[in-house]
Design a protein around this nucleic acid. Structure first.
Length: 529
RNA sequence: GACCCCAUCGUCUAGAGGCCUAGGACACCGGGUUUUCAUCCCGGUAACACGGGUUCGAAUCCCGUUGGGGUCGCCA
Protein backbone atom coordinates (compact mmCIF):
# COMPACT_ATOMS: atom_id res chain seq x y z
CA UNK A 1 0.00 0.00 0.00
CA UNK A 2 1.34 3.39 -0.87
CA UNK A 3 2.17 5.85 1.86
CA UNK A 4 -0.24 8.69 2.53
CA UNK A 5 0.58 11.28 5.16
CA UNK A 6 -0.88 14.61 6.10
CA UNK A 7 -0.07 17.88 7.77
CA UNK A 8 -3.10 18.93 9.80
CA UNK A 9 -2.61 22.33 11.40
CA UNK A 10 -5.35 24.40 12.93
CA UNK A 11 -5.06 27.86 11.44
CA UNK A 12 -5.43 29.88 14.59
CA UNK A 13 -2.51 32.25 14.14
CA UNK A 14 0.87 32.32 12.53
CA UNK A 15 2.56 28.99 11.90
CA UNK A 16 5.44 28.43 14.25
CA UNK A 17 8.53 26.37 13.65
CA UNK A 18 7.40 23.38 15.70
CA UNK A 19 4.39 23.05 13.44
CA UNK A 20 6.25 23.54 10.24
CA UNK A 21 8.91 21.08 11.30
CA UNK A 22 6.14 18.48 11.58
CA UNK A 23 5.07 19.45 8.07
CA UNK A 24 8.63 19.11 6.79
CA UNK A 25 9.08 15.65 8.29
CA UNK A 26 5.77 14.52 6.82
CA UNK A 27 6.72 15.92 3.45
CA UNK A 28 10.18 14.35 3.54
CA UNK A 29 8.75 10.99 4.53
CA UNK A 30 6.15 11.10 1.77
CA UNK A 31 8.68 12.07 -0.87
CA UNK A 32 11.18 9.50 0.34
CA UNK A 33 8.55 6.77 0.14
CA UNK A 34 7.13 8.00 -3.16
CA UNK A 35 3.93 8.52 -1.27
CA UNK A 36 1.35 11.23 -1.03
CA UNK A 37 1.54 14.35 1.14
CA UNK A 38 -1.77 15.94 2.02
CA UNK A 39 -2.83 19.12 3.71
CA UNK A 40 -5.80 19.18 6.03
CA UNK A 41 -6.89 22.45 7.52
CA UNK A 42 -8.44 21.81 10.92
CA UNK A 43 -10.54 24.92 10.97
CA UNK A 44 -13.33 23.76 13.23
CA UNK A 45 -12.44 26.26 15.91
CA UNK A 46 -14.53 28.97 14.30
CA UNK A 47 -13.67 31.51 16.92
CA UNK A 48 -9.97 31.44 16.23
CA UNK A 49 -9.65 30.15 12.67
CA UNK A 50 -9.46 33.09 10.32
CA UNK A 51 -9.09 33.42 6.55
CA UNK A 52 -5.96 35.45 7.18
CA UNK A 53 -4.42 32.63 9.18
CA UNK A 54 -5.27 30.13 6.45
CA UNK A 55 -3.75 32.39 3.82
CA UNK A 56 -0.59 32.81 5.85
CA UNK A 57 -0.35 29.04 6.32
CA UNK A 58 -0.60 28.36 2.59
CA UNK A 59 1.84 31.15 1.90
CA UNK A 60 4.45 29.80 4.26
CA UNK A 61 4.11 26.28 2.90
CA UNK A 62 4.63 27.51 -0.60
CA UNK A 63 7.63 29.54 0.47
CA UNK A 64 9.24 26.44 1.95
CA UNK A 65 8.36 24.32 -1.05
CA UNK A 66 6.02 22.03 0.87
CA UNK A 67 3.83 21.10 -2.04
CA UNK A 68 0.84 18.87 -1.34
CA UNK A 69 -0.63 16.36 -3.70
CA UNK A 70 -4.37 16.77 -3.52
CA UNK A 71 -6.70 19.64 -2.81
CA UNK A 72 -6.55 20.63 0.87
CA UNK A 73 -9.32 19.16 2.99
CA UNK A 74 -11.05 21.74 5.12
CA UNK A 75 -12.32 20.09 8.25
CA UNK A 76 -15.45 22.22 8.45
CA UNK A 77 -16.58 20.57 5.20
CA UNK A 78 -16.63 17.22 6.95
CA UNK A 79 -18.94 17.97 9.86
CA UNK A 80 -21.79 15.94 8.43
CA UNK A 81 -19.47 12.94 8.04
CA UNK A 82 -18.27 13.36 11.62
CA UNK A 83 -21.80 13.41 12.97
CA UNK A 84 -22.72 10.41 10.86
CA UNK A 85 -19.78 8.53 12.31
CA UNK A 86 -20.93 9.44 15.80
CA UNK A 87 -24.39 8.20 14.98
CA UNK A 88 -22.95 4.89 13.82
CA UNK A 89 -20.93 4.54 16.99
CA UNK A 90 -24.07 5.18 19.01
CA UNK A 91 -25.92 2.57 17.02
CA UNK A 92 -23.14 0.01 17.43
CA UNK A 93 -23.06 0.54 21.16
CA UNK A 94 -19.61 2.08 21.03
CA UNK A 95 -20.93 5.39 22.30
CA UNK A 96 -23.61 6.69 24.60
CA UNK A 97 -25.17 10.03 25.33
CA UNK A 98 -24.59 12.03 28.45
CA UNK A 99 -26.28 15.13 29.77
CA UNK A 100 -23.51 15.78 32.23
CA UNK A 101 -21.73 19.09 31.98
CA UNK A 102 -23.47 20.74 29.02
CA UNK A 103 -26.75 22.25 27.95
CA UNK A 104 -28.00 19.26 26.02
CA UNK A 105 -26.76 15.75 25.45
CA UNK A 106 -23.18 15.07 24.41
CA UNK A 107 -22.08 11.87 22.69
CA UNK A 108 -19.43 9.96 24.59
CA UNK A 109 -17.20 7.32 23.05
CA UNK A 110 -16.87 4.21 25.16
CA UNK A 111 -13.52 2.45 25.46
CA UNK A 112 -14.87 -0.93 24.38
CA UNK A 113 -15.60 -3.43 27.10
CA UNK A 114 -14.49 -6.17 24.73
CA UNK A 115 -11.22 -4.35 24.28
CA UNK A 116 -9.36 -7.39 22.97
CA UNK A 117 -11.04 -6.98 19.62
CA UNK A 118 -8.78 -3.97 19.12
CA UNK A 119 -5.23 -4.67 17.94
CA UNK A 120 -2.67 -3.61 20.52
CA UNK A 121 -4.76 -4.41 23.55
CA UNK A 122 -3.13 -6.90 25.87
CA UNK A 123 -3.62 -8.41 29.27
CA UNK A 124 -1.17 -7.13 31.85
CA UNK A 125 -2.21 -9.14 34.87
CA UNK A 126 -3.99 -8.94 38.21
CA UNK A 127 -3.80 -5.72 40.18
CA UNK A 128 -4.73 -4.76 43.71
CA UNK A 129 -4.99 -1.08 44.54
CA UNK A 130 -5.54 0.31 48.04
CA UNK A 131 -8.16 3.05 48.05
CA UNK A 132 -9.18 5.75 50.44
CA UNK A 133 -11.94 4.40 52.70
CA UNK A 134 -13.78 7.67 53.12
CA UNK A 135 -14.37 8.08 49.41
CA UNK A 136 -16.96 5.65 48.10
CA UNK A 137 -16.09 3.73 44.95
CA UNK A 138 -18.66 4.57 42.32
CA UNK A 139 -19.40 2.46 39.29
CA UNK A 140 -21.58 3.64 36.48
CA UNK A 141 -21.72 3.75 32.71
CA UNK A 142 -18.97 6.36 32.54
CA UNK A 143 -16.53 4.19 34.46
CA UNK A 144 -15.10 3.59 37.89
CA UNK A 145 -14.22 6.43 40.24
CA UNK A 146 -12.34 6.11 43.51
CA UNK A 147 -9.66 7.84 45.56
CA UNK A 148 -6.06 6.80 45.99
CA UNK A 149 -4.30 7.43 49.26
CA UNK A 150 -1.53 10.01 48.99
CA UNK A 151 1.71 9.80 50.98
CA UNK A 152 0.14 12.15 53.50
CA UNK A 153 -2.98 10.04 53.74
CA UNK A 154 -5.17 12.33 51.70
CA UNK A 155 -7.71 11.21 49.17
CA UNK A 156 -6.55 11.71 45.58
CA UNK A 157 -9.33 11.28 43.01
CA UNK A 158 -8.70 8.68 40.33
CA UNK A 159 -10.62 6.54 37.94
CA UNK A 160 -11.05 5.25 34.45
CA UNK A 161 -13.29 3.67 31.91
CA UNK A 162 -15.25 0.50 32.66
CA UNK A 163 -13.09 -1.52 30.32
CA UNK A 164 -10.11 -0.75 32.50
CA UNK A 165 -11.60 -2.73 35.35
CA UNK A 166 -12.50 -6.11 34.01
CA UNK A 167 -13.35 -8.53 36.81
CA UNK A 168 -13.40 -5.64 39.26
CA UNK A 169 -13.99 -6.54 42.88
CA UNK A 170 -14.22 -3.95 45.61
CA UNK A 171 -12.97 -5.28 48.95
CA UNK A 172 -13.53 -3.88 52.42
CA UNK A 173 -11.04 -3.69 55.26
CA UNK A 174 -11.82 -7.28 56.28
CA UNK A 175 -11.08 -8.55 52.80
CA UNK A 176 -14.69 -9.29 51.99
CA UNK A 177 -15.90 -8.70 48.47
CA UNK A 178 -18.47 -5.89 48.62
CA UNK A 179 -19.02 -5.50 44.90
CA UNK A 180 -18.40 -7.63 41.85
CA UNK A 181 -18.64 -5.94 38.45
CA UNK A 182 -19.18 -9.19 36.55
CA UNK A 183 -22.55 -9.65 38.25
CA UNK A 184 -23.97 -6.40 36.99
CA UNK A 185 -21.90 -5.41 33.99
CA UNK A 186 -24.73 -5.64 31.48
CA UNK A 187 -26.90 -3.25 33.43
CA UNK A 188 -24.01 -0.86 33.99
CA UNK A 189 -23.04 -0.81 30.34
CA UNK A 190 -26.64 -0.19 29.40
CA UNK A 191 -26.73 2.73 31.76
CA UNK A 192 -29.52 1.06 33.69
CA UNK A 193 -27.71 0.90 37.01
CA UNK A 194 -25.00 2.60 39.00
CA UNK A 195 -23.39 1.66 42.28
CA UNK A 196 -21.55 3.27 45.17
CA UNK A 197 -19.55 1.17 47.58
CA UNK A 198 -19.01 2.80 50.97
CA UNK A 199 -15.93 2.16 53.12
CA UNK A 200 -13.85 0.46 50.42
CA UNK A 201 -10.33 -0.74 51.14
CA UNK A 202 -8.99 -2.27 47.95
CA UNK A 203 -9.76 -2.66 44.27
CA UNK A 204 -8.92 -5.96 42.64
CA UNK A 205 -9.08 -6.41 38.89
CA UNK A 206 -7.27 -7.62 35.82
CA UNK A 207 -5.35 -4.86 34.17
CA UNK A 208 -5.36 -4.49 30.42
CA UNK A 209 -3.37 -2.08 28.36
CA UNK A 210 -3.50 -0.59 24.91
CA UNK A 211 -0.25 -0.22 23.05
CA UNK A 212 1.11 0.72 19.68
CA UNK A 213 4.45 0.87 17.99
CA UNK A 214 5.81 4.34 17.52
CA UNK A 215 8.33 4.68 14.72
CA UNK A 216 10.28 7.17 16.80
CA UNK A 217 9.69 6.15 20.40
CA UNK A 218 9.33 2.41 20.08
CA UNK A 219 6.63 0.39 21.82
CA UNK A 220 4.34 2.50 23.95
CA UNK A 221 1.46 1.36 26.12
CA UNK A 222 -1.03 2.68 28.61
CA UNK A 223 -3.24 0.82 31.10
CA UNK A 224 -6.94 1.01 30.32
CA UNK A 225 -7.77 1.84 33.93
CA UNK A 226 -6.12 5.22 33.44
CA UNK A 227 -8.07 5.96 30.26
CA UNK A 228 -11.50 7.50 30.33
CA UNK A 229 -14.38 7.49 27.93
CA UNK A 230 -14.34 10.75 26.03
CA UNK A 231 -16.76 13.17 24.46
CA UNK A 232 -16.84 13.03 20.67
CA UNK A 233 -19.80 15.31 19.99
CA UNK A 234 -20.53 18.28 22.22
CA UNK A 235 -23.93 19.02 23.57
CA UNK A 236 -24.19 21.76 20.93
CA UNK A 237 -23.83 19.04 18.26
CA UNK A 238 -20.33 20.02 17.16
CA UNK A 239 -17.71 17.26 16.76
CA UNK A 240 -14.72 17.23 19.06
CA UNK A 241 -11.12 17.09 17.79
CA UNK A 242 -10.67 13.36 18.46
CA UNK A 243 -13.61 12.36 16.30
CA UNK A 244 -12.96 14.88 13.55
CA UNK A 245 -9.27 14.07 13.36
CA UNK A 246 -9.76 10.32 13.17
CA UNK A 247 -12.67 10.55 10.73
CA UNK A 248 -10.66 12.75 8.41
CA UNK A 249 -7.67 10.45 8.61
CA UNK A 250 -9.96 7.63 7.54
CA UNK A 251 -11.48 9.74 4.78
CA UNK A 252 -8.07 10.70 3.47
CA UNK A 253 -6.78 7.13 3.83
CA UNK A 254 -3.85 8.23 5.92
CA UNK A 255 -1.35 5.42 6.45
CA UNK A 256 1.23 7.17 8.66
CA UNK A 257 0.55 9.80 11.26
CA UNK A 258 3.62 11.92 11.96
CA UNK A 259 2.98 14.67 14.48
CA UNK A 260 4.22 16.35 17.64
CA UNK A 261 5.00 14.59 20.87
CA UNK A 262 2.07 16.25 22.56
CA UNK A 263 -0.27 13.84 20.79
CA UNK A 264 1.14 10.65 22.28
CA UNK A 265 -1.61 10.38 24.89
CA UNK A 266 -4.30 11.00 22.29
CA UNK A 267 -3.07 8.07 20.28
CA UNK A 268 -4.31 5.53 22.82
CA UNK A 269 -7.79 6.92 22.41
CA UNK A 270 -7.57 7.25 18.66
CA UNK A 271 -6.58 3.62 18.29
CA UNK A 272 -9.95 2.64 19.73
CA UNK A 273 -11.78 5.10 17.50
CA UNK A 274 -10.15 3.76 14.35
CA UNK A 275 -11.08 0.24 15.38
CA UNK A 276 -14.66 1.12 16.27
CA UNK A 277 -15.08 2.86 12.92
CA UNK A 278 -13.83 -0.25 11.16
CA UNK A 279 -10.65 1.33 9.84
CA UNK A 280 -7.11 -0.03 9.98
CA UNK A 281 -4.94 1.61 12.59
CA UNK A 282 -2.32 3.80 10.93
CA UNK A 283 1.37 3.77 11.74
CA UNK A 284 2.43 6.45 14.18
CA UNK A 285 5.54 8.54 14.68
CA UNK A 286 5.74 11.23 17.35
CA UNK A 287 8.27 13.97 16.88
CA UNK A 288 10.12 15.53 19.80
CA UNK A 289 9.31 19.13 20.60
CA UNK A 290 11.42 22.06 19.55
CA UNK A 291 12.19 24.15 22.59
CA UNK A 292 13.26 27.76 22.95
CA UNK A 293 16.35 29.28 24.49
CA UNK A 294 15.05 28.64 28.00
CA UNK A 295 14.53 25.00 27.15
CA UNK A 296 10.77 25.48 27.26
CA UNK A 297 8.49 24.47 24.44
CA UNK A 298 7.79 27.16 21.88
CA UNK A 299 4.40 28.57 22.48
CA UNK A 300 2.57 30.86 20.17
CA UNK A 301 3.76 33.60 22.46
CA UNK A 302 7.35 33.19 21.31
CA UNK A 303 7.04 35.91 18.73
CA UNK A 304 10.37 35.11 17.12
CA UNK A 305 9.44 31.57 16.31
CA UNK A 306 6.94 32.22 13.55
CA UNK A 307 8.00 30.95 10.17
CA UNK A 308 6.99 34.25 8.60
CA UNK A 309 9.45 36.08 10.83
CA UNK A 310 12.32 34.05 9.44
CA UNK A 311 11.28 34.99 5.96
CA UNK A 312 11.00 38.64 6.97
CA UNK A 313 14.49 38.61 8.44
CA UNK A 314 15.83 37.35 5.17
CA UNK A 315 16.50 33.68 5.65
CA UNK A 316 16.47 31.54 2.55
CA UNK A 317 13.75 28.91 2.54
CA UNK A 318 16.23 26.18 1.59
CA UNK A 319 18.41 27.12 4.56
CA UNK A 320 15.57 27.18 7.06
CA UNK A 321 14.25 23.93 5.64
CA UNK A 322 17.70 22.34 5.93
CA UNK A 323 18.23 23.66 9.44
CA UNK A 324 14.88 22.44 10.66
CA UNK A 325 15.51 18.94 9.35
CA UNK A 326 18.61 18.87 11.54
CA UNK A 327 16.53 19.52 14.64
CA UNK A 328 15.68 16.04 15.84
CA UNK A 329 17.08 14.23 12.85
CA UNK A 330 20.46 13.59 11.30
CA UNK A 331 21.63 11.57 8.33
CA UNK A 332 23.92 9.51 10.61
CA UNK A 333 27.14 10.98 9.36
CA UNK A 334 28.81 14.39 9.45
CA UNK A 335 26.88 15.99 6.64
CA UNK A 336 24.79 19.00 7.51
CA UNK A 337 24.36 21.17 4.45
CA UNK A 338 22.10 18.94 2.44
CA UNK A 339 20.08 19.71 -0.62
CA UNK A 340 16.42 18.95 -0.72
CA UNK A 341 17.09 16.05 -3.04
CA UNK A 342 19.64 14.59 -0.65
CA UNK A 343 17.30 15.10 2.28
CA UNK A 344 14.53 13.26 0.48
CA UNK A 345 16.72 10.32 -0.27
CA UNK A 346 18.26 10.16 3.22
CA UNK A 347 15.21 10.76 5.41
CA UNK A 348 13.90 7.90 7.51
CA UNK A 349 11.77 7.97 10.64
CA UNK A 350 14.04 5.62 12.56
CA UNK A 351 16.73 8.28 12.57
CA UNK A 352 14.48 10.77 14.29
CA UNK A 353 15.65 11.70 17.78
CA UNK A 354 13.33 11.02 20.69
CA UNK A 355 14.46 13.87 22.92
CA UNK A 356 13.58 17.53 22.48
CA UNK A 357 15.82 19.87 20.47
CA UNK A 358 16.66 23.47 21.15
CA UNK A 359 16.69 25.98 18.36
CA UNK A 360 20.07 27.69 17.88
CA UNK A 361 19.70 30.93 15.96
CA UNK A 362 23.45 31.28 15.46
CA UNK A 363 23.79 27.94 13.80
CA UNK A 364 20.87 28.83 11.57
CA UNK A 365 22.64 32.09 10.69
CA UNK A 366 25.76 30.20 9.79
CA UNK A 367 23.93 27.74 7.58
CA UNK A 368 21.98 30.52 5.96
CA UNK A 369 25.24 32.33 5.29
CA UNK A 370 26.58 29.25 3.54
CA UNK A 371 23.48 29.12 1.36
CA UNK A 372 23.79 32.82 0.57
CA UNK A 373 27.45 32.54 -0.35
CA UNK A 374 26.57 29.74 -2.74
CA UNK A 375 23.92 31.77 -4.54
CA UNK A 376 24.65 32.98 -8.09
CA UNK A 377 25.91 36.55 -7.71
CA UNK A 378 23.18 38.01 -9.89
CA UNK A 379 20.44 36.36 -7.89
CA UNK A 380 21.95 37.44 -4.60
CA UNK A 381 22.21 41.01 -5.86
CA UNK A 382 18.62 41.01 -7.04
CA UNK A 383 17.30 39.65 -3.75
CA UNK A 384 19.44 42.02 -1.76
CA UNK A 385 18.24 44.94 -3.85
CA UNK A 386 14.61 43.94 -3.35
CA UNK A 387 15.23 43.92 0.36
CA UNK A 388 15.89 47.66 0.26
CA UNK A 389 12.55 48.64 -1.16
CA UNK A 390 10.99 51.27 1.03
CA UNK A 391 14.17 52.32 2.79
CA UNK A 392 14.83 56.05 2.52
CA UNK A 393 18.54 55.84 1.88
CA UNK A 394 17.95 53.41 -0.96
CA UNK A 395 15.85 55.85 -2.98
CA UNK A 396 17.46 56.67 -6.29
CA UNK A 397 20.40 54.47 -5.47
CA UNK A 398 23.18 53.96 -8.03
CA UNK A 399 22.35 50.48 -9.33
CA UNK A 400 25.77 49.81 -10.79
CA UNK A 401 27.36 50.73 -7.50
CA UNK A 402 24.89 48.49 -5.67
CA UNK A 403 25.93 45.58 -7.84
CA UNK A 404 29.56 46.04 -6.86
CA UNK A 405 28.67 46.34 -3.19
CA UNK A 406 26.61 43.15 -3.37
CA UNK A 407 29.49 41.29 -4.98
CA UNK A 408 31.84 42.50 -2.25
CA UNK A 409 29.49 41.66 0.60
CA UNK A 410 27.85 38.42 -0.53
CA UNK A 411 30.26 36.03 1.15
CA UNK A 412 29.79 37.80 4.47
CA UNK A 413 26.01 38.12 4.51
CA UNK A 414 24.13 35.95 6.96
CA UNK A 415 20.62 37.12 6.23
CA UNK A 416 19.11 39.55 3.79
CA UNK A 417 18.34 41.80 6.73
CA UNK A 418 22.09 42.47 6.86
CA UNK A 419 21.73 44.38 3.61
CA UNK A 420 20.04 47.17 5.51
CA UNK A 421 23.41 47.81 7.10
CA UNK A 422 24.99 48.64 3.75
CA UNK A 423 23.79 52.22 3.86
CA UNK A 424 27.29 53.61 4.33
CA UNK A 425 28.21 52.64 0.78
CA UNK A 426 25.69 55.13 -0.50
CA UNK A 427 25.12 58.82 0.08
CA UNK A 428 27.79 61.38 0.84
CA UNK A 429 28.49 60.71 4.50
CA UNK A 430 27.83 57.63 6.64
CA UNK A 431 26.24 57.70 10.04
CA UNK A 432 29.07 57.68 12.54
CA UNK A 433 28.96 55.47 15.60
CA UNK A 434 30.01 57.59 18.56
CA UNK A 435 31.78 54.76 20.37
CA UNK A 436 33.76 53.82 17.27
CA UNK A 437 34.85 57.40 16.70
CA UNK A 438 35.88 57.81 20.31
CA UNK A 439 37.95 54.69 20.17
CA UNK A 440 39.69 55.09 16.81
CA UNK A 441 39.66 58.76 15.91
CA UNK A 442 40.47 60.47 19.19
CA UNK A 443 44.27 60.57 18.89
CA UNK A 444 45.77 63.61 17.11
CA UNK A 445 48.45 61.58 15.26
CA UNK A 446 45.71 59.40 13.81
CA UNK A 447 43.86 62.43 12.53
CA UNK A 448 47.04 63.82 11.03
CA UNK A 449 47.67 60.57 9.22
CA UNK A 450 44.07 60.39 7.97
CA UNK A 451 44.40 63.95 6.67
CA UNK A 452 47.59 63.03 4.85
CA UNK A 453 45.93 59.96 3.41
CA UNK A 454 43.07 62.09 2.12
CA UNK A 455 45.54 64.33 0.29
CA UNK A 456 47.38 61.32 -1.03
CA UNK A 457 44.21 59.69 -2.38
CA UNK A 458 42.98 62.97 -3.77
CA UNK A 459 46.10 63.16 -5.91
CA UNK A 460 45.41 59.77 -7.50
CA UNK A 461 43.57 59.68 -10.83
CA UNK A 462 41.42 56.78 -9.64
CA UNK A 463 41.43 54.32 -6.78
CA UNK A 464 42.55 50.71 -7.17
CA UNK A 465 43.06 48.03 -4.54
CA UNK A 466 46.83 48.08 -5.03
CA UNK A 467 47.00 51.85 -5.22
CA UNK A 468 45.01 52.33 -2.02
CA UNK A 469 47.06 49.74 -0.22
CA UNK A 470 50.30 51.39 -1.25
CA UNK A 471 49.01 54.79 -0.18
CA UNK A 472 47.89 53.51 3.20
CA UNK A 473 51.23 51.81 3.81
CA UNK A 474 53.18 54.88 2.88
CA UNK A 475 51.13 57.20 5.05
CA UNK A 476 51.20 54.77 7.97
CA UNK A 477 54.96 54.44 7.75
CA UNK A 478 55.49 58.16 7.36
CA UNK A 479 53.42 58.85 10.49
CA UNK A 480 55.04 56.13 12.54
CA UNK A 481 52.18 53.65 12.59
CA UNK A 482 52.80 49.92 12.56
CA UNK A 483 51.36 47.95 9.67
CA UNK A 484 47.62 47.75 9.81
CA UNK A 485 47.24 50.10 12.74
CA UNK A 486 45.67 52.74 10.59
CA UNK A 487 43.12 50.43 9.02
CA UNK A 488 40.44 50.58 11.69
CA UNK A 489 40.65 54.39 11.94
CA UNK A 490 40.28 54.56 8.17
CA UNK A 491 37.30 52.25 8.34
CA UNK A 492 35.60 54.31 11.02
CA UNK A 493 36.32 57.55 9.20
CA UNK A 494 34.90 56.32 5.91
CA UNK A 495 32.14 53.91 6.97
CA UNK A 496 31.25 55.11 10.43
CA UNK A 497 31.54 51.64 11.95
CA UNK A 498 34.15 49.06 12.88
CA UNK A 499 33.15 46.08 10.83
CA UNK A 500 32.86 45.52 7.12
CA UNK A 501 34.63 44.08 4.13
CA UNK A 502 38.30 44.66 3.33
CA UNK A 503 38.99 48.37 3.75
CA UNK A 504 40.89 48.81 0.47
CA UNK A 505 38.09 47.26 -1.55
CA UNK A 506 35.66 49.36 0.42
CA UNK A 507 37.49 52.58 -0.41
CA UNK A 508 37.71 51.62 -4.06
CA UNK A 509 33.98 51.10 -4.19
CA UNK A 510 33.34 54.38 -2.40
CA UNK A 511 35.49 56.08 -5.01
CA UNK A 512 38.03 58.80 -4.74
CA UNK A 513 35.90 61.80 -4.09
CA UNK A 514 33.70 60.29 -1.37
CA UNK A 515 36.63 58.56 0.33
CA UNK A 516 38.52 61.83 0.49
CA UNK A 517 35.49 63.77 1.57
CA UNK A 518 34.71 61.33 4.38
CA UNK A 519 38.29 61.25 5.63
CA UNK A 520 38.42 65.03 5.77
CA UNK A 521 35.01 65.26 7.34
CA UNK A 522 35.97 62.79 10.07
CA UNK A 523 39.20 64.63 10.80
CA UNK A 524 37.45 67.99 10.98
CA UNK A 525 34.52 66.76 13.05
CA UNK A 526 36.64 64.98 15.63
CA UNK A 527 39.16 67.82 15.87
CA UNK A 528 36.38 70.27 16.54
CA UNK A 529 34.74 68.06 19.16
C1' G B 1 -0.31 14.54 42.34
C1' A B 2 -1.09 10.21 38.82
C1' C B 3 0.32 8.05 34.17
C1' C B 4 3.77 8.23 30.15
C1' C B 5 8.30 9.87 27.74
C1' C B 6 13.37 11.72 27.65
C1' A B 7 18.75 12.36 29.34
C1' U B 8 26.49 12.57 25.01
C1' C B 9 30.51 19.26 24.78
C1' G B 10 26.89 25.88 26.08
C1' U B 11 23.65 24.26 21.48
C1' C B 12 22.46 20.60 17.28
C1' U B 13 24.30 15.83 16.90
C1' A B 14 27.57 10.84 15.61
C1' G B 15 27.60 6.57 18.59
C1' A B 16 23.06 -0.10 18.06
C1' G B 17 29.01 -3.91 24.06
C1' G B 18 35.29 -3.79 22.23
C1' C B 19 36.63 0.56 16.15
C1' C B 20 35.77 5.89 21.94
C1' U B 21 42.13 8.48 24.55
C1' A B 22 33.95 9.75 22.63
C1' G B 23 33.82 12.08 16.20
C1' G B 24 31.50 16.39 13.44
C1' A B 25 28.94 21.24 13.23
C1' C B 26 27.56 26.08 15.50
C1' A B 27 29.27 29.26 19.29
C1' C B 28 33.70 30.51 22.07
C1' C B 29 39.24 31.19 22.54
C1' G B 30 44.07 31.38 19.95
C1' G B 31 46.83 31.60 15.38
C1' G B 32 47.25 32.31 9.93
C1' U B 33 45.88 34.68 5.15
C1' U B 34 53.92 39.14 6.28
C1' U B 35 46.98 45.03 6.60
C1' U B 36 41.67 45.92 8.70
C1' C B 37 37.00 42.45 8.69
C1' A B 38 31.30 39.37 9.31
C1' U B 39 34.52 35.59 4.58
C1' C B 40 38.41 31.69 4.22
C1' C B 41 42.32 28.26 6.51
C1' C B 42 44.69 25.99 10.93
C1' G B 43 44.66 24.88 16.13
C1' G B 44 42.41 24.75 21.12
C1' U B 45 38.86 24.64 25.44
C1' A B 46 34.53 21.74 26.18
C1' A B 47 30.17 16.18 27.13
C1' C B 48 28.57 10.32 28.13
C1' A B 49 23.43 13.64 34.80
C1' C B 50 24.38 10.49 39.41
C1' G B 51 24.55 5.60 41.94
C1' G B 52 24.28 0.52 41.61
C1' G B 53 24.37 -3.90 38.77
C1' U B 54 25.12 -7.51 34.12
C1' U B 55 29.76 -8.53 31.31
C1' C B 56 36.51 -10.31 30.28
C1' G B 57 34.80 -5.40 28.57
C1' A B 58 29.39 -0.34 28.85
C1' A B 59 28.17 6.21 26.42
C1' U B 60 25.80 1.77 24.52
C1' C B 61 22.03 -3.54 28.36
C1' C B 62 19.16 -3.72 33.45
C1' C B 63 17.54 -1.29 38.15
C1' G B 64 17.26 3.00 41.16
C1' U B 65 17.99 8.38 41.98
C1' U B 66 17.99 13.21 40.15
C1' G B 67 16.63 16.53 36.47
C1' G B 68 13.58 17.91 32.23
C1' G B 69 9.20 17.32 29.24
C1' G B 70 4.23 15.60 27.82
C1' U B 71 -0.83 14.32 29.22
C1' C B 72 -4.68 14.29 32.53
C1' G B 73 -11.28 19.52 29.00
C1' C B 74 -18.03 19.22 25.93
C1' C B 75 -9.24 23.06 23.45
C1' A B 76 -6.82 21.47 19.18
Amino acid sequence: MSVRVRFAPSPTGHVHIGNIRAAIFNWLFARHENGVFLLRVEDTDRERSTPAAIASLLDVMQWLGLDYDEAPLYQTSQVAAHLEAARRLLEQGDAYTSAKGGDGEAIVFRIPWEAERVPGVALVGPVETPVHPETPVTIDRAGVAYALVSAKGKAVPAGGCLAGFRDLEVLDADGRVRFRLADVVDQVLAGAASFAVEQPARLRYTRRQVGYHDAVKGDLAKPLDSLRDFVIVRSDRTPVFHLANVCDDITQHITHIIRGDDHVENTYRHVFLFAALGAPIPHYAHLPMIVNREGKPYSKRDGDAFVGDFRDKGYLPEALFNYLTLLGWSPGDDREKLSRRELVSLFTLDRVQSSPAQMDARKLDNLNGQYMAALPAARFAAEARARLRGLRWADGLDEALFGRVAALMQSRAKRYADVEGWAYFFGELPEYEAAACAKFLAAAPVRAALGALADRLDAMPELTDAGVEAAVREVAAAHGFAEGKLNQPIRVATTGCTIGAGIYETLVILGRSRSVKRLRHAVAATSAG
